[in-house]
Design a protein around this nucleic acid. Sequence first.
DNA 1: CGCAACTTTCGAAGCGCTTCGACGATGCGC
DNA 2: GCGCATCGTCGAAGCGCTTCGAAAGTTGCG
Lengths: 342, 342
Amino acid sequence: MATIADVAQAAGVSISTVSYALSGKRSIKSDTRDRVLAVASELGYLPHASARMLAAHRSHIIAVSEPVHPDTDDAAHMAFAMQTTRVARAHNYDTLLLVHDDALEGMRRSAATQLADGIVVLDVDEDDARVPLARTLACPTVFVGLPADTEGLVCVDLDFEAAAREAVDRLVDAGHRQIGLISHRLETIERGSNFPRRVLRAFTERCEERGIRHAITHPNGHTADGSVRRLLEQLPGLDGIVLNTTADVASSLSAILATRGLEVPRDVSVIAAGVSFTTARFAVPFDTMPLDAQASCTAAMDLLVKAIDGGDRTPRIVLIPPTYIDHGSVIARAAADPDPGV
Amino acid sequence: MATIADVAQAAGVSISTVSYALSGKRSIKSDTRDRVLAVASELGYLPHASARMLAAHRSHIIAVSEPVHPDTDDAAHMAFAMQTTRVARAHNYDTLLLVHDDALEGMRRSAATQLADGIVVLDVDEDDARVPLARTLACPTVFVGLPADTEGLVCVDLDFEAAAREAVDRLVDAGHRQIGLISHRLETIERGSNFPRRVLRAFTERCEERGIRHAITHPNGHTADGSVRRLLEQLPGLDGIVLNTTADVASSLSAILATRGLEVPRDVSVIAAGVSFTTARFAVPFDTMPLDAQASCTAAMDLLVKAIDGGDRTPRIVLIPPTYIDHGSVIARAAADPDPGV
DNA sequence: CGCAACTTTCGAAGCGCTTCGACGATGCGC
DNA sequence: GCGCATCGTCGAAGCGCTTCGAAAGTTGCG
């Protein structure tokens, strides 16, 4: 491996000149700089990572805390971890994956040893133990997801409330009058996941504001079987469904409605809101406002880099407005509002 | 952050004594050592990662190359990345995630800058560009998966051939006489994935050795719809199915067979071989020989650590024998072999 | 009692880089 | 033509740790 000393010698300049030529932190005469760069690339010189870290007090590594519970939705988590990594690279950072069963230990260690310049916390629970920990760490930290107490934190998340409201509004504006919400399994919610509750709350509020009959159900297995039955019991004239659930439940919905003679969108309109899978490949693709890993991770990384490089650690909550993707699963009903609005 | 100098001063010894007391690389009188350890934990001392790396020529970081193609099976990949990380921690290594679109650049960089002590290459293609690259790197590398040319490499993989043979044997021994294989989509195979071909080959060979009628099909969508139709065309008396395909295709199988009046296992026995999803939660759970991330990653990490710490870089191929998990989806047929064997 | 052989601890030399202060060389104004 | 600011470069001081060699202090044996 070539060192900076090799480059300096080959280019006939001092070590510091090479360093400045490569970093651009001081001006170097352009022909000297060109010579240094040429020699460096010829020798295949790349600075030794730990030497650079030690001298510059900067590791260019970001730790990603991704805990894994039994009911973890692997595909969704993967997307976030991958996106975080991809976005980090765009900022010239590498990512260290922390999945140790004790997520706290990993965060503490990578902060204390200064292995990481910053931390991204994924899959945040309502009452997440990583929240109080982050408050004690000197290491800049960004949460992707909203814990209950956000005091002093930097958080990024999809605006689930807005997604729920928009789903209701779209259905109501298109003339729907009996709307059901298929939520996540109760165990998921009880385990502490936060966003399903936010959707529940906003859904209920908006339906009530608009004076619409509504019902909520939680699947108990991995299909929409029981959910559909319960919704129809409560809303015999069910004409709209909002989905905020898992991929397996959502993908089973059309077939299960079909067994009751209901077709999407002919009889029932469907909108997925704040879901982490794509509905495009379903037999009947549903309109969706996805929980977009790319948007969240990009915003989170911007904030993190700003905190690391710019020293701006102002606490803040960034809610990402949902994007509506139309797949034709919502149609206007006979009793449609004369002014569809939106 | 406390440094080693702080610990030394507080314990009234020299820096090197602290270092040896903590590393155990030289003997230190036990009461001195205890005092040092006590002071260190009292001050919450943890060695500065990059200083340690620089001095010890060891980063305690392993790079994990996980490329992402359009048809990537996210959940399966996640499992491997997570398992690798977990196993690495057990060896006191952290993992750096390399998912940059140019996987080669990441490997080259982390090796050249000595950011990583070793590399784990996941999701290996038949003709993987990372193979020739690894041969040029000084950094110990382990492949999880088998490329076409394994010359000089260290590779770990499930013994897919054995899994395919065992599936055939189990079915034949239980009296099945017309066996179909539902493989992966052709585009996946053409993209370069290796293991589907190994399964195809071994399946065909074994069926011919045992003189059994057989057929192979590739799904073209995300359900088993067309596959079942094609198999039944070729094998009207189809009584056994081997699955080596994706989760969505597999999970749709029972329902699709049902539309033809076929029930598992009453009419058709099913075995999944070398699949990366769990069949336990299917409506009808299938017997399976899973592609087990934990087994592969553990074996890979053992080899990698042996290469890093022990300097043993002998090329070798480790094939992990499949484990058969019985869920009752195979039953004996009328024409059963008098000696079920196995 | 003296010397060899340990045992225990220390000092100092790096690891390869960044960065600060300084120094000679130029350019400019008066 | 002299002083002053600016430019381009260099030397050296770390960053916090590991590790080698050696210096004390101890023990054992002839």
